Measured scan of single mutants.
Amino acid sequence: DSWHDTVDGIELELHGADEELLKLAKELLKRGVSEEEVRRIIEELLK
């Protein structure tokens, strides 16, 4: 799946992010949310 590559990229960027955020990112990508949107959501949550 192409979203796996996206998640791997996000995981590299979010090496400090907790497991729950990564699960959320994967779930959003699986549901068709764009990579940009996922990054934006996670950045908001990390604030």
Results as ranks from 00 to 15, higher is better:
D1S: 14
S2E: 13
S2P: 13
W3H: 11
H4F: 12
H4D: 12
D5N: 11
D5A: 12
D5R: 00
T6W: 13
T6H: 14
T6L: 10
V7F: 15
D8H: 14
D8S: 14
I10F: 14
I10C: 02
E11C: 08
L12P: 05
L12A: 04
L12V: 08
E13Q: 09
E13V: 10
L14N: 04
L14Q: 04
H15W: 14
H15F: 07
H15I: 14
G16L: 11
A17T: 08
A17H: 09
D18L: 08
D18K: 07
E19A: 14
E19Y: 08
E20D: 08
L21Y: 06
L21F: 06
L21D: 01
L21P: 01
L22R: 11
L22V: 09
K23Q: 13
L24R: 02
L24W: 05
L24C: 06
L24N: 01
A25G: 03
K26H: 12
K26F: 08
K26N: 09
E27R: 05
E27D: 10
E27N: 03
E27T: 04
L28S: 00
L29H: 02
L29M: 04
L29G: 01
K30S: 15
K30L: 15
K30Y: 08
R31M: 15
G32Q: 01
G32W: 01
V33P: 01
S34M: 02
S34H: 07
S34K: 08
E35V: 15
E36G: 07
E37Y: 03
V38P: 00
V38H: 00
V38I: 06
R39N: 04
R39Y: 11
R40H: 08
I42P: 00
I42G: 00
I42L: 06
E43N: 09
E43D: 08
E43F: 08
E43P: 00
E43I: 11
E44S: 07
E44T: 06
E44Q: 07
E44I: 06
L45G: 02
L45P: 00
L46S: 04
L46F: 05
L46A: 04
K47L: 12
K47D: 06
K47Q: 12
K47F: 08
